[in-house]
């Protein structure tokens, strides 16, 4: 074993998991897909006293629809989300983004609840949830509550969850679409190698009317700062325009003018800002082209 010693519990219900977490105190950690936690343990960067393994909590493994919303259990694997017909139909941006999550082996283990709770600004799922006005259900022995993801993501690796709360479900409302418009979306991620952790990226959803005027736009930024970002200012530039190249370039510039990406060996702040700007530009252009072609 590479990690430091820890206690291990494998509850089979949310109630038991919540009880263990409440009793486990600050040093207890939840284990879902383990794609971030296990490397941290093996490098001994993390040393929890108790690991609560959620993989046997089968009630968290559902995907269903209700009242115009998609409800995805926290334990659903990325590959299952990406391959689900309802996701492809209603949230193609999420399916596209999941294709950038590392490699198939990792997508077969990583979970939507895990990546949401991890709150990594360069991860693919959080930014899409933000652009989709998603919410999560947080469960504890004290009850459960809904949190909008915009309120959930506080900073890098930091959420507004209380230490005793477990994300049990991610809720994505169906997009409200104006009649007579066509929506296009695109996710553009930049990394040095296939499947690598992103240097940066951009995502866009645009809604075009019959005259080709953008009625509604959402612009998301990957790895742009301490949390996933959405640029309302860029959306304002795009809305009511025909999404001409110059307009889109201006929107990408506006989106990235104020961002402060984290620099490292693969790129410093200035370069990452350039990359995120270019990816944002490409995302909007691609989304617009898809809308014009009617291919979603």
């Amino acid at each position: 074993m590479k990690p430091p010693a820890f206690e291990y519990e494998a509850p089979s219900t949310v109630e038991d998991a919540a009880r263990l977490l409440a009793d486990g105190g600050d040093d207890a950690k939840l284990l879902a897909g383990g794609q971030s936690l296990i490397p941290l343990l093996n490098l001994r960067f993390a040393a929890p006293s108790l690991l609560i393994d959620l993989n046997g909590v089968l009630e968290l493994a559902h995907i269903n629809e209700a009242a115009g919303e998609l409800r995805i259990g926290a334990l659903v694997r990325h590959s299952a989300v990406a391959g689900h017909a309802l996701v492809a139909e209603r949230h193609p941006l999420l399916a596209e983004a999941l294709g950038y999550v590392a490699h198939p082996q990792i997508r077969n283990r990583g979970t939507i609840g895990g990546t949401t709770a991890h709150s990594d600004p360069a991860a693919e799922v959080p930014v899409v949830l933000l652009m989709s006005d998603a919410r999560v259900i947080a469960h504890s022995t004290r009850g459960q509550r809904e949190i909008a993801v915009d309120d959930l993501f506080v900073s890098i690796f930091t959420t507004s969850l209380e230490p005793d709360e477990i994300i049990t479900e991610v809720i994505i409302p169906d997009r409200h679409v104006e009649p007579g418009t066509i929506t296009g979306s695109s996710f553009q991620e930049f990394a040095r190698r296939h499947g690598d952790y992103a240097i940066g990226g951009g995502a866009a959803i645009v809604e075009l009317d019959a005259e080709g005027i953008c009625r509604n736009a959402r612009v998301g930024l990957l790895g742009a700062g301490m949390r996933p970002e959405e640029s309302k200012a860029a959306a304002a530039v795009l809305e009511n325009s025909t999404l001409a190249e110059d307009t889109v370039r201006e929107a990408a510039r506006v989106a990235t003018a104020e961002i402060n990406p984290l620099g490292n060996v693969h790129g410093d702040v200035q370069y990452r800002r350039e990359v995120i700007r270019e990816m944002t530009f490409r995302a909007v252009m691609t989304a617009a082209n898809k809308a014009k072609a009617g291919t979603a």
Partner: peptide, 9 residues
Amino acid sequence: EGSNAYGGA
């Protein structure tokens, strides 16, 4: 400089 092994922190 630095390492981003786990997200640039």
